[in-house]
Design a protein around this nucleic acid. Structure first.
Lengths: 201, 201
DNA sequence: GACAAAATAGGACAAACGTCCTATTTTCCG
DNA sequence: CGGAAAATAGGACGTTTGTCCTATTTTGTC
């Protein structure tokens, strides 16, 4: 019981520190200090720093998946569900303005480190991608659904990066409005094909 | 003569390594090895690592400014000039797919390090922002010009991040096409107000 | 209560880090 | 040519890094 508790605590705190300080800039000592355990104990749970990273990414994948399930249940329509995604830019603004997007910043850092877990980290993006694609499919977009999902993904990603760089909430709010307006147009356009998802253009 | 040569060489190589490996992951020894000088000599030119960073950022600001001047001269119309910006996603693709956008990735890294030069680094974004705003002003967009500039900036930034995460050239090409299509619509819409920039809506 | 297993503590290790120092060499200018 | 200044080399420093090791304590089970 104590084992899983400590292990989980390590992962949670490592997750937070990797996000706020970056993976490489976070040391074993940093994590151990916050968890309040010795480095020796640390090594009993994780054999290497990369192993913690893998655990953190795994947790993020699970948390993301759960969040998507929640959005699926909460949102009455595909449009509302996609809006849930768009809104995280504002929901998590206090973190984003300081540390950027957790997913994007980890991917870019691992890319520069040429780290083997880079692909694994990008799978968090894939989760959003698949989920968004599904929503657009339900809006009647067949072949275009994936492209639209990627469009939303990149748009929000860019807003997070620029919002962080300029620390500008007003700009982020405006872009969120633009995205919702765009989504509004998109959801009306194919309202006819809503029930015939597979309809070829 | 030899001084400026060595100093410039250090900055150029540091610029490249900071981009490809990240600022913090690049050590004095890394740079010295490529420049082929001793660490002692290194310290004669730069008193600290932060000082090199400042020099690198300064160079990037100058290079960017020069590039914008070139685009200004090469492009016949505002639309063509903005297209020059959009196209860098494809022009620099071989680098972007491996290391992301040089501007965005440095800003996010410095944000996590809570580095004092973060604001200075984001000024590269500001250069693009002002230049793009100018182009949209010439297209007849008065008050909206800045918002449109930021929109292009964030869009391309997101595409760079996602393109890097997924290593997907096809997606990037599609987004570039979308951006050019969007720009096409935007440049036609306000063709009437082209000569009356200050015209209030 | 006994005993194996898990958990924890804390020190030791070599390597790498940014920084600083002192010599030596090269360059520049009167 | 000569002497001041700049450029370069290379070692030394204190810290921090990830990793590993060996004890000690706690836990779970028969």
């Amino acid at each position: 019981m104590a084992q899983r508790g400590t292990r989980q605590k390590i992962v949670e705190i490592a997750d937070d520190l990797f996000y706020r300080q970056g993976f490489e800039h976070t040391s074993f000592a940093d994590i151990a200090k916050v968890v309040n355990i010795s480095r020796g104990n640390f090594y009993h749970h994780f054999k290497s720093k990369d192993e913690i990273l893998d655990a953190v990414i795994k947790t993020r994948l699970e948390m993301t998946q759960q969040m998507l399930v929640d959005w699926e249940e909460e949102g009455a329509s595909p449009k509302e569900r996609i809006e849930s995604y768009i809104r995280i830019l504002l929901t998590n603004w206090t973190m984003i303005k300081e540390y950027g997007c957790p997913v994007g910043t980890l991917c870019t850092e691992l890319a520069k480190l040429n780290h083997t877990s880079k692909e694994q980290a990008s799978k968090v993006f894939t989760l959003f991608r698949i989920w968004l694609r599904q929503q657009f499919s339900q809006l009647g977009y067949g072949d275009e659904a994936d492209g639209l999902a990627m469009h939303v993904l990149s748009w929000s990603q860019g807003v997070a990066t620029l919002g962080n760089a300029f620390n500008d909430l007003e700009y982020v709010s405006q872009e969120v409005s633009k995205m919702c307006d765009w989504l509004d147009v998109m959801s009306r356009r194919n309202i006819s094909g809503k029930k015939s998802n597979q309809k070829k253009r």
